[in-house]
Structures are given as C-alpha cells and as structure tokens.
Simulated assay, not measured.
Amino acid sequence: MKWLYILLSLVGGMLAGLQAPINGSLGKKIGSLEGAFTSFFVGTLFLTFVALFFGKGQLVQLLQVPKWNLLGGLLGAVFVTITIISVPKVGAAAAILAAIVGQLVISMVIDHFGLFGVPKIPMNINRLFGLLFMLAALFFIYRGNAAS
C-alpha cells in the first residue's frame, strides 16, 4: 500500500513540473513577484474552497501549533518565486531538477537525524549513490542546455 503514496508523490512532482513553466511564463508577463503573488492567490482561493467544504473543521487549532509550523507557507512562497525567476533563464528541466536535488539533500539530512518528527532513516551507501546519480543528472541536464 505504500506504493500508492509513492505514486501520489510522483503525480505531485509532475504537477510541480507543470507549475514551473506555467508560473515562469506568468512571471515574464507580469513580473516575478507579481507572478508568485498571483500563483499563491489562486492557490489560496482553491484551498479556501476545499478546506471549507472538505476540511475537518480544525482550523481553530491553528493558534495552538508551534509557530515554526507556520513557516511552510513562507518557504513555499520563496520556492515558487525562485522557480519563477529560474525557469525562464535555465529552462524547466534544469530548474526543476536542481530544486529536486536541493529537496533530496535536505530531506536526507532530515531523514538521517529524524528531524520534524519524521522516521529516522540513516544515510547509507544506496542513498548516497542515489544522490550522486541525481547530481550527475543535474550536471548533464544543465550541460545539455548549452548545446541548444
């Protein structure tokens, strides 16, 4: 059953891959910060509807969570803004792969130390090789940009 979550994450990654060039195009037309704002505004409208009609009604618990739990939105806004700036300069593939490699690096640190309440999964040779292959992929994808 865990494979379902892998598949779901794969779809989420595909959506992020679509989001990057769409937002990059928007940013070129209206400005990077304006594009990021518009992207989050549309997302906020969508999530407001979903939360109101399909949520668990626990939004009042927001005042009880540790304040660092609220950083996710800020980090997401910075990520989207960086993507909007990067995609028109290096292309969707290089920008997204660089973002994935960055996510992989920090995720492996989080896993290794069991930070933020995730299960502790120590670094091992298989994970290290996976990271090295991703770095190699980033090198070749970026290098392929120069060929065109």
Rank of each mutant, 00 (worst) to 15 (best):
L4M: 07
Y5M: 01
L7C: 11
G12K: 08
G12P: 11
A16T: 07
A20S: 03
P21M: 04
P21L: 11
I22E: 00
I22A: 03
N23Q: 09
L26K: 10
K28S: 06
S32H: 14
G35F: 00
G35N: 01
A36E: 10
F41Y: 08
G43F: 08
L45C: 14
L47E: 01
L52A: 07
L52M: 12
K56Y: 05
Q61R: 13
L63D: 09
L63R: 15
V65W: 06
W68L: 12
N69C: 15
L71K: 04
L74H: 07
L75Q: 12
L75W: 10
G76N: 07
G76E: 01
K89E: 13
K89D: 13
K89I: 12
V90Y: 04
V90P: 05
A94H: 05
A94N: 04
A95L: 12
I96A: 14
A98Y: 06
A99V: 14
V101S: 05
G102V: 02
I110D: 03
D111H: 07
H112I: 10
L115G: 00
F116A: 10
I121Q: 10
P122D: 07
M123L: 12
R127V: 10
L131S: 03
L132K: 08
F133Q: 07
A136T: 15
F140N: 09
R143Q: 15
N145C: 12
A146P: 07
A146T: 14
